[in-house]
């Protein structure tokens, strides 16, 4: 009899939408998984394993051309399905369809790009969030548990979906996407409703920098 181990899949915010411009890529880490997030020429976001199948180079070091992403190392070029389409060293070769980069489920909602972890999760659709605008991604050297407890003390409430918290501050309702990176690091992706005033956004930046400082001091002490 075979036993199946059920792995809970979950959607994790990995970047602010407005920080991944069309035609660019970036490396992110979520729960220890290295992910390349990139946006193709039609504006669609992708989240893949950050590893070229050829020599293991990080795809996030590569570059986006049209609707393909290309490895920096030897120029192997992959289409939106993750399938290798072109190998510059062998331009005449029809590339075997088996050369693929593994893809995460990806969604874009609430001003955030989301990846479904772990790799190979049954693709479920993302619940959806109201339209928001990114203000800043804050990277904090502290565990998920520490960051969460500090946010709760600041008055954060759980959001509509997992890994999201809501905080009213300075007359704005922030929605904060929480990305667990490792046991010792988290990112907070802070968003505000469209039309939120500039001075409110600036005070949110002040708050976020102070928050990072205070949490990291706490983490050093404990």
């Amino acid at each position: 009899m075979t036993q199946t181990v059920e792995v809970l899949s979950q959607w994790v915010p990995i970047a602010l939408s407005n920080m991944i411009e069309t035609g660019t890529s970036a490396g992110v880490v979520a729960k220890g998984a290295e992910i390349v997030v990139w946006r193709d020429s039609s504006g669609v976001a992708h989240a893949w394993e950050d590893r070229c199948p050829h020599r293991g180079m990080k795809m996030s070091f590569g570059f986006v051309r049209g609707d393909h992403i290309t490895c920096l190392y030897h120029g192997w070029e992959y289409d939106q399905s993750g399938t290798c389409q072109y190998i510059p060293a062998h331009p005449e070769v029809e590339v075997p369809k088996s050369i693929c980069v593994a893809r995460y489920g990806v969604a874009e909602a609430g001003g955030l790009i989301w990846a479904q972890l772990p790799l190979g999760s049954d693709e479920s659709s993302f619940a959806g969030l109201p339209a928001m605008e990114g203000v800043k991604s804050v990277y904090i050297d502290a565990s998920y548990a520490t960051v969460l407890s500090v946010l709760r003390k600041q008055g954060c409430a759980d959001g509509a979906v997992a890994n999201v918290m809501i905080l009213d501050r300075d007359g704005a309702t922030m929605t904060i996407g929480i990305q667990p990176i490792s046991n010792a690091q988290c990112a907070l992706h802070i968003t505000v409703p469209k039309g939120c005033a500039g001075d409110v956004r600036e005070s949110i930046l002040d708050w976020s920098e102070e928050l990072r400082r205070s949490i990291e001091e706490l983490e050093v002490v404990t």
């Binding site: 970047a15 920080m19 411009e21 660019t24 970036a26 490396g27 992110v28 800043k136 991604s137 990277y139």
Partner: peptide, 19 residues
């Protein structure tokens, strides 16, 4: 900075500016 193993993940505003 990647030459001394400091990656660009944590610096989204720097990435956009560098572009």
């Amino acid at each position: 900075s990647r030459d001394f193993n400091l990656d660009h993940d944590e610096f989204p505003a720097l990435r956009l500016w560098a572009r």
